[in-house]
Design a protein around this nucleic acid. Structure first.
Lengths: 219, 219
DNA sequence: ATTCAGTTGTGACGCTATTCACAGGATAAG
DNA sequence: CTTATCCTGTGAATAGCGTCACAACTGAAT
């Protein structure tokens, strides 16, 4: 039905986020051997509206059938093509404390196009160990390993005060995307994309809104 | 300067998030013994605009001085009053794997008004141990411990398939806010506020936008 | 072949969040 | 006291995102 996909003008971050969610859902549909899916079904399972789903899917090169909805296999391919680099992207975890380990565990083999291939730390106790199938290197080796393994993304799970220096080292080595878990705002050049996962902020938001829906005690 | 703070009409989630960030910033200003701060300074340090900062602060009961800006101590108090329950809120971490441990470590003593007071798991290896000053109980005890310790918030760091049952147990015990780290959408009654921290989604977003700012190779 | 039910793709619209821009106000200097 | 400066608080304008609603379409049933 779609004729041609034109140059994607400024896609909204929200749309990319939702596409990622649809993509995950499609995996479970595939596993259940579902062949077609309607926008309202995706909507129901994700909590968005069907119009929202269709609007989001306009960004990817797909064509729903007006009678059967979307072909699960084809939609999967379309989102993959849109969302992922053809050859995949390599990721490093910087800071192998509890959080770093959790990230290694969590992402191990989760998305084939995004593989966590290295960990970095300064603590001699973890350097050179293999954690969850992932070799941990000393921070001194960021430059070499990032180049050799063609790492383009880094997840920062280091203490606040170490975050900016760690980011600088990663960027100098060629990393162009950072997922920062440290509670500080990073200064980076405009060619680097940073997303900040602020756990304290999330918890405080939940605390606030939980009180609102609650018995509304106090203020 | 402000005359009176009226009943807060539907505050935006974004505003609460930013207030939390301002609040954290104020801590560092206090430590550095800074007495006053302008909206444009807060803006600079957080990456928002000064108008945004002032607009956000309209929600809290404060009054900036047109010449000296905001009094750091007073602004801190005002945000605290607005954001936190007077008596604080207690938090539990459900699922004491790597991520759960990371959360225990991370939040230990970070915010006085939000104290993580219990962990829950089903694994006998961790049950009854004390991790980072926090006692870990068996999931069977959620009901009792939540009631006794007046826990109102839960952070779910369990595997996907365990997330919904765990949420149900917590809600039945009286929890009204959930921060969910499992990659599934939780079904909860409207009286419960859920926020979803989707690590896969965040990483995929960074991967996508890093490629955009990058050499723009492929599509 | 025709009708019918139910879906997609999308222009138009509406709502909400953010930014603009300025009146009003505080302080310091003269 | 007066002026100059530079801030806050906020109404109005703007922008960005999501929703509505409907024409176009598909396939099944008759």
């Amino acid at each position: 039905m779609r004729v041609f996909t034109t140059v994607d003008q400024r896609i909204a971050e929200q749309t990319i986020g939702r596409l990622s969610l649809y993509r995950r859902l499609l995996d479970t549909l595939m596993r259940d051997c579902v062949e077609h899916v309607y926008s309202h079904q995706l909507a129901e399972k994700t909590g968005f509206t069907s119009a929202q789903v269709r609007r989001d899917l306009m960004a990817v090169d797909t064509a729903g059938n007006t009678r059967r909805g979307y072909d699960v296999g084809e939609l999967t391919r379309a989102i993959d093509d849109y969302l992922y680099a053809p050859s995949g992207q390599q990721v490093a975890v910087v800071g192998i404390g509890n959080l770093g380990r959790a990230l290694l565990t969590f992402f191990s083999g989760r998305r084939p196009k995004l593989s966590v291939v290295a960990g970095f730390d300064v603590d001699e106790q973890v350097v050179d160990r293999v954690i969850h199938g992932c070799r941990v290197y000393h921070m001194d080796e960021v430059d070499r390993v990032v180049a050799e393994d063609e790492i383009t993304l880094a997840m920062l799970a280091v203490p606040s005060e170490a975050a900016q220096p760690a980011a600088d080292v990663c960027i100098a080595a060629g990393v162009s995307g950072i997922l920062n878990f440290a509670p500080v705002r990073l200064k980076v050049p405009p060619s680097v994309y940073v997303s900040h996962v602020d756990l304290t902020m999330y918890l405080e938001m939940v605390a606030f809104f939980a009180r609102q829906t609650d018995g509304d005690k106090g203020d």
